[in-house]
Design a protein around this nucleic acid. Structure first.
Lengths: 336, 336
DNA sequence: TTGAAAGCGCTAACAT
DNA sequence: ATGTTAGCGCTTTCAA
């Protein structure tokens, strides 16, 4: 019968051994005779013994679980990253705990505190759009708590990072639009402070430059909360509608679909005259109307790489880690 | 300085009190003088003391965390349910742990075992498409472990359930299509065994009946893994293409978008002759092409109700709970 | 090779 | 009103 909640003591009693011997046998310690091990293992198997992970965590200060912090799981990119993380975590016997910030810096901090105090062994995180102060994360890392950043990474903290080649992605998008004949290319992006915003903006500017187009600040629009807050996207799209843009490069899943929605609702004529390219990992872009060109991040890979780095860091005995920044290529999925 | 890892002992030592007094003061026990409480609270605040939740869990057999098990977080419906759950859980100081089955019965069982052994106080779950044996869940509940089911609920287990009015939703969809003039209405659905499949199928049949249309089994197609497995959806859509259906009622987020994709790719002419209604909680249905009619579940509400029931059950001292089945209305979002 | 005992941080009888 | 002590289930010195 499953789930009987036996303890090591029960096994010890049943087998006339001491709890410590049982514990060692279960962990396949070299000090235990093969015979005893077999005995213990067999009995444990028979009663379907499960170690109490809480007790072990308390003792070992290790929980074999890693935390994930993203802004929203209802985001194609993040949910794919999470799948990637899970795929390596489970393989190495780590459990995964997911939490959302909804782009709030306060919620982010609460989540971090919670995961830390629950003896999560390390954290994988993408910063919230609102986050500006990351010093508490640095403190945590200084104390030896491993954090690997992905996608939205802090500028200053020495840590592993896994990101997409956002600059190149932005460049590719603009290059594609320019080739299609656009000459007034707008840019719709998330919070100014985010690494991804900066990098993609840079790519955008490079792209314009390469095609002899000028950078017009009136065509660059920010959503401080990544389009999550009521009205921020509408306002910005309205502002854009008053300009004469003929192409747009959008920086993010939520913004891309949000832009399409607002345009469909309010500017269904105008939208036909705009060529659209955007970062999105939606698996259903090909059923969107109007059709758009997608810049895709290798989300699953990013999750895998980030998880590998984290687990490696967790399991490294000494903190002397050389931090890496892994940059993965984006791909452009042109509309047919 | 944050995250210093002070313990109750540290406070006790600093204040010349015993650990138990500190513990009681921190928990605002009636036996402690107001003075001492103030002293302890102030000092705890000052050093930013955080109780170690692992230790507390071990002692109390309670973790103030609840587990969520869904097939996929990359599903509009489920991610909205999760948001609803979070909204009540956080309000009552419960942490939430999310895990995915990817429609695998084995993964589901592993997740349940893991969450249970980690002293999760209870579970909120929607069954995987593959699940047939739920006896282990019943065993768990018999041992006093609270589980509340939502969306995909087991037929036999006495437990709280929170579901949408799937039958009515199915009926509404078919009614809508029939009114539009469809006479050969197909039905694309998930695994046969799932409660939602059965209920929606029933609504579908009722709808046909109400409009004097006959039920043709050739028009009802199942995806055993909810469209998650490679090829299962393609095959079924192909089979359908060989019939003369002029309307289709689709039972689920993944299937609805999947259907649109396959049709767009392979039957882009044919699709124009089919009226489509489907269960989906996508927030971007209005940018889909072709346009579809959405049957929406009150996902956020469902999450809230389920979480309330679970927490109530967790906090009920004695197991004598009268199990409820909450049925929430669906709404039909007609295309414009 | 095995056992006894201490301790992780917290709570709760049971003293006082 | 406060302190002493034991114990949650596990691991791990230290001793035998």
């Amino acid at each position: 019968m499953a789930f009987e909640n036996y303890t090591i003591k029960d096994i010890a009693k049943a087998l006339n051994l001491s709890p410590s011997t049982v514990s060692r046998a279960l962990r396949d310690s070299y000090e235990i005779s093969a015979e005893t091990k077999k005995l213990v293992m067999a009995y444990a198997e028979k009663i379907n013994y499960r170690a109490n992970p809480i007790a072990r965590s308390l003792k070992e200060r290790k929980s074999y679980s890693i935390g994930i912090i993203v802004s929203e799981i209802a985001n194609n990119f993040f949910s794919q990253v999470i799948d990637g993380i899970e795929s390596v975590a489970y393989g190495k016997n780590y459990q995964v705990v997911i939490s959302q910030t909804h782009e709030s810096a306060e919620r982010e901090r609460l989540n971090v505190e919670h995961l830390y105090s629950r003896s999560t062994d390390g954290l994988l995180m993408a910063l919230s759009a609102e986050t500006s102060d990351v010093s508490y994360l640095q403190d945590l890392m200084a104390k030896g708590f491993p954090i690997v950043f992905f996608d939205r990474v802090p500028a200053t903290i020495p840590a592993h990072r896994v990101i997409a080649d956002n600059k190149q992605g932005g460049y590719d998008a603009v290059h594609y639009l320019a080739q299609k004949g656009c000459t007034r290319i707008a840019h719709l992006t998330s919070a100014r402070g985010l690494s991804i915003s900066k990098e993609r903006l840079e790519g955008y500017k490079m792209g314009l430059l390469a095609h002899g187009l000028e950078v017009d600040d009136a065509l660059v629009k920010y959503c401080q909360y990544g389009g999550l807050h009521q009205g921020e996207l509408e306002q910005v799209v309205e502002e854009l509608a008053e300009t004469d843009y003929d192409g747009i490069f959008i920086s993010g899943d939520k913004l891309t679909t949000g832009y399409l929605q607002v345009m469909n609702e309010r500017y269904d004529e105008r939208i036909k005259q705009v060529a659209i390219a955007g970062f999105t990992n939606s698996k259903v872009v090909n059923i969107f109307s109007p059709t758009i060109t997608a810049i895709r991040q290798p989300a699953f890979d990013m999750g895998q790489r980030a998880a590998e780095l984290l687990i490696q860091q967790i399991e490294a005995k000494h903190a002397a880690v050389d931090f890496e920044t892994v940059v993965l290529p984006t791909t452009l999925l042109a509309k047919k």
